[in-house]
Design a protein around this nucleic acid. Structure first.
Length: 438
RNA sequence: GGUGGCGUAGCCAAGCGGUCUAAGGCGGCGGAUUGCAAAUCCGCUAUUCCCGGGUUCAAAUCCCGGCGCCACCUCCA
């Protein structure tokens, strides 16, 4: 298995370091808003990757945090006039519901606010080691000091000068150096706080991931991942904090998923060009979204547009139609499966594998199709699991009756209406077949 | 301004020195089939990979120079 490692800038052979178990940490949501399809891309990629690891015979222990305290959660809760915990919980629940529908493997989902103790201990260790200082209740990380001893910018591949050149933010007056970042923020009136050796306050961004990953997985992590936009500063700072606290290597492999784009630009809150996952899933199946999100190599940016869901729904429907004709107990074609696995073993090249899948449809044999089915299930597709739909069945019966009476106007109307919601009716010699394309 | 990445058919997207007169999906076109459709099946849909040079027996793939786009440097998956 080869994976591209952001840290080294190369594809490297990957295997878990110990116990045949992959220890992985994926940066999860800051639960300040509804998860959108851009978020889904990262989590879908890692879900499919972890499933592939299992297929290779490795165990997987993976952590995906919820960051449930930060500036935006506080300010948004204040705007809405509700408790910040209520707001964080609302979006955490929304994420969990979306994750359930997306068929994500259950992971460990620790919350930042449940690890204040570990966070405080880690900050104390950093202070004790001389890489942080306290100013008016704030604790700042000494970037230049750490840089001298360990090197800073290893992941982002940036020099301190380059970071300074781009600095656009007014530095906090209590910082010794504009590069320094907050480990602990002093309490402000009206904001939530926890007690610490440095007074009341709350954790900075970054530190919760260092604390929770070390605690739940142990160092070094085999894999640490997230969206590419987290490389700097978030992941660079996680490395700095963890190494400054423990002196140990933080993570062996760093994996970064490319961004979802809309009309060529990054999908983001500020551009307001994002699509809410829950709303997409109300109209299209999780398999369709999964297929779309895995249709480009995970490191590339991927263009998203709503009509694209329709395109992928068609593609998935074709696969399902082909698989419906193969008995469950058909033998798989080992050589074909090896080809599919070879694509994934090369830095998880899912588009390559999908290409092979559709090519197999041109010369279908039961064993090839059985392999297609096994492969898709392995990647987390649910395929044929359709829920029973009474209303749909009645409409189909009503239309059948209309056709018998040669009332084609009514029959066609029913068919058109259903088609508009992604349900295609097909009249065959064996009767009317229902095909869901969504 | 600095750093990194990308530019492949109408759209999306693999390939990254020879098996490429370039996968696959969607769309489109023609035919079989059909109450009409849909699905399915058959055939077609880039002699060419942003442009211009170069290296090589051989380049979409490497090098140089343009042009265009994007990301990060600030919160972002």
């Amino acid at each position: 298995m080869y994976l591209y490692n952001t840290l080294t800038g190369r594809k490297e052979e990957f295997a878990p370091l110990r116990d045949n178990t992959v220890r992985a940490y994926v940066c999860g949501m800051t639960v300040q808003d509804s998860p959108h399809v851009g978020h889904m891309r990262v989590f879908t990629v890692f879900d499919a990757l972890f499933r592939f690891f299992k297929a290779l015979g490795w165990d997987v222990v993976a952590v995906q945090n919820f960051t449930d305290i930060d500036d935006k959660i506080i300010s948004k809760a204040a705007e809405e006039g509700i408790d910040w915990r209520f707001l964080a919980d609302r979006y955490e629940q929304e994420y969990r519901e979306v994750a359930r529908r997306m068929n994500f493997l259950p992971l460990l989902h620790p919350r930042a606010t449940q690890h204040i103790q570990e966070i405080v201990e880690m900050i104390q260790a950093i202070i004790d080691n001389g890489y942080a200082y306290v100013r008016e209740g704030n604790v700042w990380f000494s970037v230049r000091k750490f840089a001298r001893d360990y090197g800073y910018g290893k992941l982002a591949k940036m020099s301190l000068d380059e970071m300074m050149a781009g600095a656009r933010v007014e530095p906090d007056p209590t910082k010794e150096d504009p590069l320094d970042f907050a480990l602990w923020k002093a309490h402000k009136e009206g904001e939530p706080y926890w007690y610490s050796p440095w007074g009341k306050g709350r954790p900075g961004w970054h530190i919760e991931c260092s604390a929770m990953s070390s605690k739940h997985l142990g160092l070094p992590l085999d894999i640490h991942g997230g969206g590419r936009d987290l490389i700097f500063p978030h992941h660079e700072d996680e490395i700095a904090q963890t190494e400054a606290a423990t002196g140990q290597t933080f993570a062996r492999f760093w994996m970064h998923v490319g961004l979802l784009t809309f009309r060529g630009e990054k999908m983001s809150k500020s551009l307001r060009n994002y699509f809410i996952a829950k709303e997409i899933l109300a109209e299209y199946s999780p398999d369709t979204l999964r297929h779309l999100l895995l249709s480009a190599h995970y490191r590339s940016d991927l263009e998203f547009y709503p009509e694209k869901l329709r395109e992928h729904a068609k593609a998935v429907a074709r696969l399902k139609d082909a698989l419906a004709r193969v008995p469950e107990d058909a033998e798989e074609d080992a050589s074909f499966r090896d080809d599919l696995h070879a694509a994934l073993k090369d830095d998880f090249n899912t588009p390559e594998a999908f290409g092979l899948l559709f090519s197999a449809l041109d010369s279908p044999t039961p064993s090839k199709l059985a392999t297609v089915r096994g492969f898709l299930r392995m990647l987390g597709f649910r395929l044929g699991e359709e829920e029973k739909d009474d209303t749909l069945e009645r409409l189909v019966a009503l239309r059948l009756d209309a056709r018998r009476r040669k009332d084609y106007a009514l029959a066609d109307t029913i068919r058109d209406v259903l088609k508009a919601v992604g349900v295609e009716l097909m009249d065959t010699p064996e009767g009317t077949k229902v095909r869901k394309v969504r």
